[in-house]
Simulated assay, not measured.
Amino acid sequence: MAMGKVGKTVESLGDYLKEQRVSSRLSLRQLAEQAGVSNPYLSQIERGLRKPSAEVLQQIAKALRISAEQLYVRAGILSPDDGVGGSVELAILGDTGLTERQKQSLLDVYASFLALNAAEAEDSEESTDATEEELAHEDAPITTETNTVTNEG
């Protein structure tokens, strides 16, 4: 199932790149040369057959004079809902002192921390709700039945 999502992401990335290239009036060959990638490789990216690295996307974005962040989102490297978190991811992707593999590892670890924190926050909310419910029951008056024995006699 994940493969289907990746395929669609890459396909939309390729369509977007082709659209940007055509609107910039660049041939496939010209863009490949400016981005420093091979013509066949760029063609495969546009057709959705290859998923480029963040570094290649950055080079293509520079050649097309568009935001690398847009390409990262379309490639599935960044999530459009990241908000503030996106700045951390962009810093990692933009760090020239790291290899592509190191960047991907850091992004994976960062994403796992965010997911863990979100799960813990959700669990905390659920336990808070349960505690509030328990407290509400504790505040209820306790009634007991008493039997009165009368001594008639």
Rank of each mutant, 00 (worst) to 15 (best):
L42M: 11
D15S: 11
L13P: 00
T148E: 14
N117G: 05
A118L: 08
F113W: 10
V56T: 14
G76M: 09
L71M: 11
V149T: 01
T9P: 00
L17C: 07
L106D: 05
A121L: 12
K62T: 11
A35E: 05
G76K: 07
L31V: 09
P40L: 06
M1D: 01
D129G: 01
G94V: 02
G97C: 03
L42E: 10
A115Y: 04
T128Q: 15
D95E: 12
V37F: 02
G7I: 05
Q102L: 06
L135C: 09
E11G: 01
P52A: 02
E138A: 13
P141A: 15
K5R: 13
G48L: 06
V56E: 07
A63W: 05
A32P: 11
L98G: 04
Q59T: 02
E33S: 12
E122V: 01
E11A: 14
V10I: 15
L13G: 00
D82H: 04
A91S: 15
V149P: 00
D15M: 09
A118V: 01
S112Q: 15
P40W: 05
R25W: 04
L17T: 04
Y16N: 04
E89W: 01
T150S: 07
N147R: 00
S38F: 04
V84K: 08
D129A: 14
Q44T: 01
T96N: 09
D82R: 09
R47H: 14
E89N: 05
L26T: 03
L64S: 10
G86W: 00
L31W: 04
K18G: 10
D139C: 02
L49D: 08
D123E: 13
L13M: 07
L49E: 15
L135T: 02
V56N: 08
Q70D: 15
I45D: 10
A63N: 06
R21E: 11
S112I: 06
E134G: 08
T99N: 03
A61W: 07
N151G: 01
L106T: 03
D95S: 11
S24G: 13
A32N: 09
R50I: 04
P80V: 05
R47T: 15
E89F: 07
E19I: 00
A54F: 04
T99M: 02
E145M: 10
A63V: 05
